[in-house]
């Protein structure tokens, strides 16, 4: 009986310990990446290539998501307001939600699937086929060579991709308002700018930079610690996506609590 009662707590304890150990190892890798910034000759050229991969290649999926989100936001706003609230509030809602919440978070989640999975699968394969060991034996520091370019690319490109997504989402909301809601451009733009504050941009920036950092560093982390062949690669890829998606949502709440 006591063991039955104890079991869930033991499980929580184990989970907590695993979490703490994982956090510690991840922190060590991040610290090493920061120290590795001095190996400029190693990471500089590679970062440009990663920026193309992380950024340009992610644009289609990010814009696809943003476009449909914009359309739905506009329609749902007008449905909710049911004439009780002036229609230009559709502009307010589309603008604010895209900018503060859905643009950054949906793009972050999409990119954790796209970029995070890609990174952990690639580095995981390199780990199990001993390519990372090979780098080390040729005196290339693996963290400077593999982690730094990817994390920097994430930090730089996530905000750019998200900005594009926000733009497209708002444009989609605007077109929807014109075509389906019988609104004028004047009304939409009036709503869009009514409650706009420059801080909104800062807020979105902080979020997306942190998401870029989280997705890429977690992808690298799980890739690096991959063990056990193709199966191991599959496992770390899944873990990278699940964990970075969860961290994105937690961070999202964290920024809302601390910055708003």
């Amino acid at each position: 009986m006591t063991s039955l009662l104890r079991a869930p707590f033991a499980a929580i304890g184990r989970g907590g310990r695993t979490l703490m150990v994982g956090l510690g190892q991840w922190g060590r890798m991040v610290w090493e990446a920061i120290v590795s910034l001095r190996d400029v000759d190693v990471w500089l050229g590679l970062t440009l290539r990663q920026m193309t991969r992380v950024g340009v290649d992610s644009v289609p999926i990010a814009l696809f998501i943003a476009m449909f989100t914009g359309i739905v936001l506009a329609l749902q706003a007008s449905y909710t307001f049911t004439g009780a609230i002036p229609l230009y509030f559709v502009g307010v809602l589309v603008g604010k939600t895209m900018m503060l919440e859905l643009g950054p978070v949906l793009t972050g989640l999409a990119l954790s699937g796209r970029v995070g999975a890609n990174i952990s699968a690639e580095l995981g394969t390199m780990r199990v086929t001993e390519q990372i060991d090979a780098l080390e034996t040729m005196a290339y520091p693996p963290v400077a060579y593999l982690v730094v370019p990817r994390v920097l690319a994430g930090i730089i490109m996530f905000p750019l991709v998200t900005a594009l997504a926000i733009g497209v989402g708002i444009a989609a909301g605007w077109l929807t308002s014109l075509q389906l809601l019988d609104m004028s451009t004047y009304e939409f733009v009036y709503g869009l700018t009514l409650f706009f504050q420059p801080f909104d941009v800062t807020f979105a920036m902080v979020k997306t930079i942190s998401f870029g950092f989280v997705v890429t560093s977690i992808g690298c982390f799980y890739g690096f610690r991959t063990r056990g062949g193709a199966e191991g690669v599959g496992r770390s890829t899944t873990q990278a996506v699940v964990v970075s998606s969860m961290v994105i949502l937690v961070l999202d709440a964290f920024w809302a609590i601390t910055l708003l």
Binding site: T125, M126, T129, E130, Q131, D133, A134, L135, E136, T137, M138, A139, P141
Partner: peptide, 18 residues
């Protein structure tokens, strides 16, 4: 890293950068 410059390592499954 200094030491590794003087050591060549042939990996069991080649470990070529693909």
């Amino acid at each position: 890293f200094e030491l590794r410059r003087n050591v060549g390592y042939v990996f069991q499954f080649a470990a070529l950068f693909d």
